[in-house]
Write a protein that binds this DNA or RNA. Structure first.
Lengths: 330, 330
DNA sequence: TATTTTATGACGCACGATTGACATATTATA
DNA sequence: TATAATATGTCAATCGTGCGTCATAAAATA
C-alpha cells in the first residue's frame, strides 16, 4: 500500500494537519517540523495522491490533447511541443488520437470530461460544434472553427498559399496545380486553396485542383499522382502538405521529369523532420513552436479566468523555406 | 457546475442509490427506472466523475506512457498504437516525453505515481533501476533492461543486425561499417552492434564502428557522415536507425557515390513513414504493431494480477524490407 | 395465504487530502 | 509582565461516488 498523509504524520511525529500544512505551505510552520516532515516523506517515498487532491480542490492539472494522429510528423511535433510546455507549467497531458473517427472523438471527449480535465486542446475536428460546447470546458481549437466562443490558433494558411504560388510563378512555372489533401470547407486546407485560387486569378493563370485525399494509402496516392503527371501538362505543383510533396518528387523522378527544370514542387508544413531530412524540398513552414506556445498560453488564460476575452482567431505568420543549395527547387 | 449523481437522481425522481445502481448495473433494477435514469443523465449531460470513482475504487484507468520523444517517427507510431489499444480497453494514456532528460523523467515518474496510474509503459530509460522499482507499480519496459522483475518487450535487435549485415555482404559489400546512434551498453543499439560485430567476425571481415550520436543536430550529423564517406573506404553501411540512413543516402548522392553500386546502405526501424515515403531504403523493420500489442497485453496482465509470472524478456522477430524495385539498394 | 423474489429508498462509511474553526502552547516583542 | 506573533494539535466537514446494511413494498411464486 502506498503511504498516505497519515503515515507521514506518524513517521514524523506530528499531526496530519501539520503534514498537510507543510505540503501546501499553509499557515505557520517552523523549520524544524518542516524538515521532519520532508524527511519522513522522503523516507516513506510519499507522493500526495493527486486524485484525492483534485476531488477536494478544483483543478486536476490534466489537459486533454485531441489530435487525429501523432504518427503524422506534423502533429507529432506539435503535440510534443504542447506536452512539453504544459509539463513545465505543472500540467499533465492526456493524449487522444481520434484517427479521424467521429465516434472515437466523441468517446474521447466524454472521457476527458469524466476525468475532469482542466481544459482541452482540440486538433481533431469531426464532431459538431455542439458536442464541444456542451463540454462546458475551456477549449482552444487548432486550425478549425468550432464555435464563436472557442478561440482558434492557426498559421496563416491563406498567406502561406499565396507565398507558395507566387514562388512557383516567380521561378518560371505557368501551369501551376494545387494538390490538396482534402476538400472540407472550414478546414485549413481550404484556406490554402483559397490563397492558391486567388493568387492564380491575380496572375491571370488558370487554376487546376486535384484532391489527393489524406485517407488514401500512400501507394495509391503515388499511383494517382503518377497518372496526373503523365496525363496533364504541369510545371508547378503546390502541395498542401509535405508528405504528398515527397511523393510527387519521387514520381517525377521515376518519370524522368527534372526538378526543378521541368517541374517545380512546393510543400506545406515544414516540420523539423522535413527540414532535417528533406532540405531539398521547398516548403511553407508553419511556426510549430509558436503555435504550441500560443495554444498553451491561451488555454491557461481560459482556465485561470473563464471570462477572459480572447480574440477569436489568432493567425501566426508562416515562413517560406527555400532549398538552401542555390535558389532552386529540389 | 457539472451535474452530479444527486442532480440526476432528482431529475429522474429516484434516489441517488438507484442512480448509482443503474450506472454500475448493480442489484435489482426495473427497465422503467433504468430508462428514467438514462434519460435524466442524457438530459443533464451527466458524466460520472471518474476522479471520485477512482478515489473510491482502486483503478484510475490511467496509464503512463513514457518515451523520449513522439516527434521521432518510430516512437510516434509506437505510441499511437499503444494509445489506441489502451483506448479500446477503456484506459486513458498520459503521454510523457522525457526528451532524454534524466530530471524530467524523474519528475514525470513521480507525477505518474501521484496520479495513481494503474501502470506504466517505460520507453525512456535514463533513470536508475531503483527509481522505477520504488514506484511499486506494474511496469513494462520497452527495449531496455530495468530490473529483474520488470519484463522487457523488444524486437530481435541482434538478429536484425545479423540480417542487415548479411544482406550487405550478400550484395557484394566487403568494407561494411556500422553507424550506431549511441554507445550505451544495455541499449538496443548495443545489441545491434553485437549482431554486426559477430556477423563480421563470422565473415572474416574487419569491423568498423562509427558513432553518429542521436543527440547531434542533423546538419552536424550530415557533416560528420560526409567526412567519413570521403576519408574512409566504404562500400556498405549498416545504420542503426533509418533517419541516419537517409542522411547517408543524401551525402552519398552529393559526393557522387552511386547507390547501390558504390555504396550499399541499410537502415533500421522500418516505420510506416519510411516504408511509405522512402521505399527505396532497405531496412530492418521492427514489428511496431506487435510490440505495442504485447506491451499493452503484458501490462494489463500485471495490473489485473500482480503476481502473474511473465517471462522477463519478450523478443519479437524483425523483418528485412528490401527495396521493392529489383533486389537493389536504393 | 405464506413465502420468496424483485425493486427501491434511506443512511452512513470509505476513499485521501484540504481547510477552517478552535484550542493551546511556546516564543518574541512591547 | 502583558500582549502579540508563531507554532502545533484536535475535530469535523467537504469533494463525488460506490457499496454494504436495513427497511419496505410490490409482484411473483409456492
Amino acid at each position: 500500500m502506498r503511504p498516505k498523509l497519515n503515515d507521514v504524520a506518524r513517521e514524523a511525529g506530528v499531526s496530519s494537519t501539520t503534514v498537510s500544512r507543510v505540503i501546501n505551505n499553509h499557515g505557520y510552520l517552523s523549520e524544524k517540523t518542516k524538515d521532519k516532515v520532508f524527511e519522513a516523506m522522503k523516507k516513506l517515498n510519499y507522493q500526495p495522491n493527486s486524485i484525492a487532491r483534485s476531488l477536494h480542490g478544483k483543478q486536476t492539472n490534466l489537459i486533454g490533447v485531441l489530435f487525429s494522429s501523432v504518427s503524422n510528423p506534423f502533429f507529432g511535433e506539435l503535440v510534443e511541443k504542447i506536452e512539453n510546455k504544459f509539463f513545465k507549467l505543472g500540467y499533465k497531458t492526456i493524449l487522444c488520437n481520434s484517427a479521424d473517427n467521429k465516434e472515437k472523438e466523441r468517446v474521447y471527449l466524454n472521457m476527458l470530461i469524466a476525468n475532469q480535465v482542466d481544459g482541452i486542446i482540440a486538433g481533431a475536428h469531426n464532431l459538431g460544434i455542439k458536442e464541444y460546447e456542451k463540454a462546458g470546458l475551456p477549449i482552444i481549437s487548432f486550425d478549425r472553427y468550432l464555435s464563436d466562443t472557442i478561440p482558434i490558433v492557426s498559421s496563416d494558411n491563406y498567406q502561406g498559399a499565396v507565398l507558395a504560388t507566387q514562388e512557383l510563378y516567380q521561378n518560371g512555372a505557368k501551369s501551376i496545380y494545387l494538390f490538396a489533401s482534402s476538400q472540407t470547407p472550414n478546414s485549413p486546407t481550404d484556406k490554402r486553396r483559397t490563397g492558391y485560387l486567388e493568387t492564380m486569378a491575380h496572375l491571370n493563370l488558370p487554376a487546376h485542383e486535384k484532391v489527393i485525399s489524406s485517407s488514401m494509402a500512400s501507394n495509391v496516392k503515388a499511383l494517382l499522382i503518377k497518372q496526373i503527371l503523365t496525363t496533364e501538362s504541369i510545371d508547378g505543383i503546390f502541395c498542401t502538405d509535405d508528405l504528398t510533396a515527397l511523393i510527387v518528387l519521387r514520381q517525377a523522378k521515376e518519370l524522368g521529369l527534372r526538378v526543378p527544370q521541368d517541374l517545380k514542387v512546393i510543400g506545406y508544413d515544414g516540420t523539423q523532420l522535413i527540414q532535417n531530412y528533406h532540405p531539398e524540398l521547398t516548403t511553407v513552414a508553419q511556426p510549430i513552436n509558436d503555435m504550441a506556445e500560443l495554444l498553451v498560453e491561451l488555454l491557461l488564460q481560459r482556465i485561470e479566468n473563464k471570462k477572459s476575452d480572447l480574440k477569436h482567431h489568432y493567425i501566426l505568420p508562416v515562413k517560406l523555406i527555400r532549398n538552401p543549395s542555390s535558389s532552386q527547387f529540389c
